[in-house]
Design a protein around this nucleic acid. Structure first.
Lengths: 231, 231
DNA sequence: AAATTAAATGTACTTAATACATTTATTAAA
DNA sequence: TTTAATAAATGTATTAAGTACATTTAATTT
């Protein structure tokens, strides 16, 4: 039998989730925050988080935490970074590993969110958060931008059928810059990951705009092989 | 007084370092590995690592570990990722956070390395490592490639004065592809981060090749603002 | 004087990025 | 039924960046 490691100090490990959603009503990128209901910083806004259990990986923990807030399974999750400043949590020494999640904002469980006193906030209007959570959010949006410029983003954040305008607005929100419609369309089409449907969405204009959906296979291919998105 | 978190499980947190160096003799990218001198897996090759202490951040720990092996201070370090599979360390549940380091291979303390039974290995000839360390190395080289394509690399890995050939070989090693000499020179010059010196390095040819050094200020500027390196 | 070595150098071609304005389909109101 | 309103759909010319490619040059050694 191998001896255990001796005299080594164990620490608390937390997992915090930066949950992104794209609100199709007002075409804005949002994050889901909870109102902390215990001391310290009770009543302040915070990322959804929890402690790592002995029998789960970090991703397991992130999945569990996300499910407990949104009711969602099979969510896109990517590990971001470990935060370890000694006093980042004033209660006790805790390091935190962050994950960011991309979810379809229409699909989550509204009741659960209420129960957890959670709310969607515009990214551009993110409140002051507890501890180092604002830094986490900033790091997450930076990573999301990187991902959106190297792999397709959208399937996780949009409904199954969507318009070219919605996709463009999503990219504009992520990149935080206006894009040219014609160049955007040209670029997206060149990736050959969309299927144009015969249906139109008539909500936005008299003319209506055609709906698209992702070609799953080609989309997954692009995720694997990547692309250079620059416009 | 705020209560401590109760009933939460603490875990061991390790830090493992992927230490890159560029060997100017044989113009190869190498990593520094140690021969593990305790069970389990005694005698096997491993990344240099250690446990996180209560009074230090993860980066502090990485710095300490790196210093204990190389004698170097002020080394370039970047956090990579946390690894948390339950049985990744068979002794006891341990999560590990990796950092990669870029060092000038000529500058380290050779005695210390010997004492730690460490050795430089060609990246392309990395041996089988313990636990999930090979995965860590693969993730590290991927990140290094990303960094080399968005920010200048070189200052950390090359001597103060170097030839254009050395810089090109370094990039070729990192990217694992041959580059065209004229296009490489053109590109690097367009970044305007080098100063051409009057001196020549006569070792490599009869004609000799001019030495360059980085313009510190412009180099740091590029690190902040980034560039697109693609050849 | 000739041979050797790697360094230094430029151009034409192809591809990708950018800037930019008009017409069209449909519905609702006059 | 005509007109007004709305956002959608669409193409081209220009500029910038990436790629492919071969010869001459400086210095040293034989």
């Amino acid at each position: 039998m191998i001896q255990k490691y001796k005299n080594e100090e164990k620490v608390l490990v937390a997992v915090d989730c930066i949950i992104f959603g794209f609100d199709q009503q007002d075409e804005e990128l949002k994050i889901l925050l909870i109102k902390r209901n215990f001391a310290p910083e009770k009543g302040k806004w915070s990322l959804m988080g929890g402690f790592l259990h002995a029998d789960e990986t970090l991703k397991d923990a992130a999945t569990r935490i996300l499910h407990s807030l949104t009711g969602l399974h099979n969510v896109y999750l990517e590990q971001l970074k470990a935060y370890s400043e000694i006093d980042r949590d004033p209660v006790e020494r805790t390091i935190s590993v962050t994950y960011y999640a991309l979810i379809n904002i229409e699909a989550h469980d509204v009741e659960l969110i209420k129960k957890n006193s959670a709310r969607w906030f515009k990214m551009s209007n993110c409140p002051k958060l507890i501890f180092d959570h604002n830094e986490m959010v900033n790091d997450a949006i930076e990573r999301l931008r990187y991902r959106a410029s190297t792999q397709p983003i959208g399937f996780e954040l949009l409904p199954v059928k969507f318009t070219m305008r919605q996709l463009q607005k999503l990219y504009e929100e992520i990149m935080d810059e206006k894009l040219d419609k014609r160049n955007f369309t040209k670029k997206i089409n060149s990736f050959n990951i969309l299927e144009k449907l015969k249906e139109k969405n008539k909500k936005s204009s008299k003319k209506g705009s055609f709906l698209y959906k992702f070609n799953q296979q080609k989309y997954q291919q692009k995720i694997k092989n990547g692309f250079g998105f620059k416009i």
